[in-house]
């Protein structure tokens, strides 16, 4: 049986429909859309927090969304082990909500950047990689953000090192300064929580699920989540 997904929608979300389409039309799974004033239903296996400009990104990117009613239920789910993936603004929301370490600040180029990047997967199995996405594998995914510069204070770097999910790299997998599009510390493009069931990432897997639009590497992450849920169910 396939996983049951929830996509959370804030006013100002603008990748919500893209996420729903990737799940419903490409992955062909069951999806419920959850409005920010509601709660994520109990019987949900995976939660996606999509990109966009929740609440206009007023105050700070993701800061207001982190306080919204729906996030209480996301937190409960996260503590219970439900898989949560936050992409772009969703990553910012998860950091602001304290479900992930660190913060995302303005790109060091001081500009919004929209283009494809290469990512090296640092995941060693687990819900977002499984067996289909080996450690060290290089993915090509699009980015589109003005605030993707990931920062954690030096004293926390060792602690999060084990939880780095993806790093910006060149096409051959070399993690270089040149490959870093926004100034993120240690080229970090995505991290998980300590328990490993909450992932935040700036690049957009939901935009890379169809060859017609330029690539399908995003499917590998979403499919891993599907497979993980199926595996847990199978016991």
């Amino acid at each position: 049986m396939s996983a049951r997904w929830a996509v959370v929608i804030f006013p100002g979300s603008n990748c919500d429909r893209d996420f729903v389409r990737a799940l419903r039309d490409v992955l062909r799974v069951e999806v419920v859309e959850v409005w920010h004033k509601d709660s994520v239903p109990e019987a949900i296996d995976c939660i996606a927090i999509p990109g966009g400009f929740s609440y206009g990104d007023y105050l700070r990117a993701g800061a207001l969304a982190a306080m919204s009613p729906v996030m209480a239920s996301v937190r409960t789910h996260a503590e219970r082990g439900t898989l949560v993936i936050g992409v772009c603004n969703g990553f910012q929301v998860l950091c602001e909500a304290g479900l992930l370490p660190g913060v995302l600040t303005k790109n060091d180029t001081l500009r919004f950047r929209c283009h494809d990047v290469y990512l090296r997967s640092e995941l060693n199995g687990g819900p977002f990689a499984g067996t289909g996405l080996p450690q060290g594998e290089v993915l090509r995914l699009p980015i589109a953000h003005g605030f993707g510069n990931y920062y954690v204070p030096p004293e926390q770097r060792d602690a999060i090192e084990r939880h780095v999910a993806f790093r910006y790299c060149d096409p051959l997998g070399d993690v270089s300064r040149r490959a870093n599009p926004n100034g993120s510390v240690d080229n970090i493009a995505g991290v998980t929580n300590a328990a490993g069931n909450v992932l935040g990432m700036m690049p957009h897997p939901e935009r890379a699920v169809e060859a017609l639009l330029g690539g399908t590497d995003g499917l590998r992450i979403l499919q891993a989540m599907q497979d993980w849920v199926a595996g847990v169910r199978a016991g």
Partner: peptide, 8 residues
Amino acid sequence: QYDHQVQT
């Protein structure tokens, strides 16, 4: 500088 892919 433009998000030219949103809406996929």
